[in-house]
Simulated scan of single mutants.
Amino acid sequence: MKKSLLILLLVTLFAGAFAQSHKTQNVIIVTLDGMRWQDVFRGADSALINSKYTDDKDEVKKQFWAQTSAERRKLLFPFLWSVVSTQGQIYGNRDLGSKDEVANPYRFSYPGYNEIFTGFPDVRMNTNDPITNPNMNVLEFINKQKGYEGKVIAFSSWERFPQILNVSRSGLPVYSGYADLKNTDANDRLKYLNELQKDVPRYLGDSTRSDFITYEFTKEYMKQYKPRVLYMAFDETDDMAHEGKYKPYLERARQEDGYIKTLWEMVQADPLYKDKTTLLITCDHGRGETPIDTWRSHGADIKGAEQTWFAVIGPDTKGLGEIKTSTTTYHKQLAQTIAQLLGFDFKKNAGHEVGDAIGTVLK
C-alpha cells in the first residue's frame, strides 16, 4: 500500500513539474493512412518492387532504391530522416526492438483513429460506417480549455472524421472529404480552394478528396487563422496500397513527407509557433508483409496489421532520434501524450478509459 502511494505521489509530482516547465503551446498532428512501418524504417521494399504490384520497375529503382535501408528510407521520407530523426524521436522499428502497435483488435481505420484521439480502444468501434462516436476525444477536450477555445481544427481527405470526432457534440470544425470551409472572412486563397476542390479529378471516388487539396486547405488556414491545435489527415497511401499500386504508394508517401516539411518550415518561421510547437506524425493501422499479397490489406485477420509507428518533434521532446530500446508503445497512449504536452490531463477528464502518456516523449 505504501509503495503504491509512493508511486502515485511520484507520478503526480512529475506531472506537476512538467505542467510548470513545458514549452509546447501548439500541437500539429498528421496521419498517413495505412503507411507501413516496414517502408518507414527500411525504405522501399525490394520484394514489392520486383513483384506484380510495381509497374515501371526501373523508374521506381531510380527514385527509391539504394543499397542500405538508411539510404532508402531517406529517399522515401527526406524530412523524417533528416530533421525528425536528429531533433525528435521515431518509434516502431521492430528490427531494433522498438514496437509500436494499435491496441484495438480490428486494425482498420475508424477503430484506429478512435484509439488515437480518444485513448480508448473501444470494442464497439468495429466499423467504417458513419456512426457517431460516443467517446470524448482529446481535440474536443482541448477545445474546451482556456486559451484554446475555437483554436482547434481538423482537415482530412477521408470523409468519416465528422463522425469519428463527433462534431454534433464536440462542436469542432472538421473539414473532410469535399466539405467547403465555412469561414465568411476566409481569404481569397481559401475561397478559391472551396471552388477548386469541386473541379479536381475525383480519382479517390465521390467522397474522398485528394491529399493535395487537404494539404492546401491546412496550409492556408494556418497562415490566416493561426490555430493552436491542428490535425491533418492524409488518405492516399492507404488507397494506393489497397489498389495494389506500389509505385504510387511510394510517391504519395514522399509527397506527404514534403507537405509536412513545408508546414514545419512555416512553424519555424513564425514567432507565434517557433519553439512552442510539437509535431506528431503517425498512422491508423499497419498492413501485412508475408505472404506478399497481404501488403494490400489490413484487419483482424491480417498478420502484422497491428504494427504501427509514430514520430514526434518539439520543444519538450528530447532529440533521441530512432528509438532502439526494446519497448512497446500503443496508440491508445497518444491522446494523453498530446494533452500532457500542452499541460492538460485528458485521462482525468475523458469519462472513459485512456492510456497513459508516453513518458519518453516528455522531457
Score class of each variant (00 low, 15 high):
residue 4 S to M: 12
residue 5 L to C: 07
residue 5 L to Q: 12
residue 9 L to S: 14
residue 9 L to C: 12
residue 11 V to W: 09
residue 12 T to E: 11
residue 16 G to N: 14
residue 16 G to A: 11
residue 18 F to D: 13
residue 21 S to R: 13
residue 23 K to I: 06
residue 23 K to Y: 06
residue 23 K to W: 05
residue 26 N to E: 11
residue 27 V to P: 07
residue 29 I to S: 08
residue 30 V to P: 06
residue 36 R to Y: 02
residue 37 W to I: 02
residue 41 F to Y: 07
residue 42 R to P: 00
residue 43 G to K: 05
residue 46 S to R: 13
residue 50 N to Q: 10
residue 50 N to E: 15
residue 57 K to P: 05
residue 57 K to Q: 14
residue 59 E to I: 04
residue 66 A to N: 06
residue 67 Q to T: 11
residue 72 R to V: 09
residue 75 L to D: 10
residue 82 S to Y: 04
residue 84 V to D: 13
residue 90 I to R: 08
residue 93 N to C: 12
residue 98 S to V: 08
residue 100 D to F: 15
residue 100 D to K: 05
residue 101 E to V: 15
residue 104 N to A: 13
residue 105 P to E: 11
residue 111 P to I: 11
residue 114 N to K: 01
residue 116 I to H: 03
residue 117 F to W: 05
residue 121 P to G: 08
residue 122 D to G: 04
residue 122 D to E: 07
residue 123 V to T: 15
residue 131 I to L: 13
residue 132 T to M: 10
residue 133 N to S: 14
residue 136 M to I: 09
residue 136 M to H: 10
residue 137 N to H: 12
residue 144 K to Y: 07
residue 151 K to W: 04
residue 155 F to L: 14
residue 158 W to V: 04
residue 160 R to P: 00
residue 161 F to K: 01
residue 161 F to N: 02
residue 162 P to I: 02
residue 162 P to R: 01
residue 168 S to A: 10
residue 173 P to I: 00
residue 176 S to I: 04
residue 176 S to E: 02
residue 179 A to N: 01
residue 182 K to W: 01
residue 188 D to Y: 02
residue 191 K to D: 03
residue 192 Y to R: 09
residue 194 N to V: 00
residue 194 N to K: 06
residue 197 Q to I: 00
residue 198 K to H: 12
residue 198 K to I: 02
residue 198 K to V: 01
residue 199 D to K: 15
residue 202 R to Q: 13
residue 203 Y to V: 15
residue 210 S to W: 00
residue 210 S to L: 11
residue 214 T to H: 02
residue 218 T to L: 03
residue 222 M to P: 06
residue 237 T to Y: 04
residue 239 D to H: 12
residue 239 D to A: 15
residue 241 A to K: 04
residue 242 H to L: 04
residue 243 E to Y: 12
residue 246 Y to V: 12
residue 248 P to M: 09
residue 250 L to K: 06
residue 251 E to W: 03
residue 251 E to R: 08
residue 254 R to M: 06
residue 256 E to T: 01
residue 257 D to I: 01
residue 258 G to V: 03
residue 258 G to S: 12
residue 260 I to A: 04
residue 261 K to H: 14
residue 265 E to Y: 07
residue 266 M to V: 06
residue 269 A to T: 14
residue 276 K to Y: 03
residue 278 T to R: 04
residue 281 I to A: 05
residue 283 C to Y: 00
residue 285 H to P: 10
residue 286 G to R: 03
residue 286 G to V: 01
residue 289 E to Q: 09
residue 291 P to H: 07
residue 292 I to L: 15
residue 292 I to V: 10
residue 293 D to C: 07
residue 293 D to P: 03
residue 294 T to E: 14
residue 295 W to Q: 12
residue 297 S to T: 09
residue 300 A to Y: 10
residue 300 A to F: 05
residue 301 D to C: 03
residue 303 K to H: 11
residue 306 E to T: 00
residue 308 T to W: 05
residue 311 A to V: 09
residue 314 G to A: 11
residue 314 G to V: 00
residue 315 P to F: 01
residue 315 P to G: 12
residue 315 P to M: 09
residue 322 E to W: 05
residue 324 K to Q: 14
residue 326 S to R: 15
residue 331 H to R: 05
residue 331 H to C: 08
residue 331 H to T: 01
residue 332 K to V: 08
residue 336 Q to V: 03
residue 340 Q to P: 05
residue 345 D to N: 13
residue 348 K to L: 11
residue 351 G to L: 11
residue 353 E to R: 09
residue 360 T to H: 14
residue 363 K to W: 04
residue 363 K to R: 13
